[in-house]
Design a protein around this nucleic acid. Structure first.
Length: 110
DNA sequence: ACGTTGACCTATA
DNA sequence: GTATAGGCCAACG
């Protein structure tokens, strides 16, 4: 299975449970590409080209801040989607981030 | 083809 | 504790 790094990211992101969020670094580390967190961001950028259904809104940066909200077509979509799942978002930052944080390298345990 | 940018993270000063 | 630098790999100009 020679799945590209991007595809790997998509698979993990789609496995994120409801009402949970994760960070780019966590996904990158789970894929064994710790340090290449930027590639995860690029993967999200191309996510619409592979699978538009990818919940990229559940992926935020280390601070829990919605850094890529501007890439959803409208900067409000990401926050709306998160709030729709019961996630409180204030000032473009996820509340109780550590509480709803979902780490694939811990939950999936590879 | 080269240079810069990019939805980031970690480390050092 | 805040600021700056480095690194990672791929795509865009």
């Amino acid at each position: 299975m020679e799945e590209s790094f991007f595809v790997r990211v998509y698979e993990v992101v789609k496995k994120i449970p409801y009402g949970r969020v994760t960070s780019y670094g966590a996904v990158a580390r789970y894929l064994g590409a710790a340090g290449s967190s930027r590639m995860v961001g690029w993967a999200m950028n191309n996510s619409h080209s592979y699978d538009p259904s990818i919940p990229a809104h559940r992926v935020v940066n280390r601070k829990g801040m919605l850094t890529g909200k501007h890439h959803f077509g409208s900067p409000d979509i990401m926050q709306q989607l998160l709030e729709n799942e019961g996630i409180e978002v204030v000032d473009d930052c996820v509340k109780n981030f550590s509480g709803i944080f979902w780490d694939p390298s811990v939950e999936l345990r590879i």
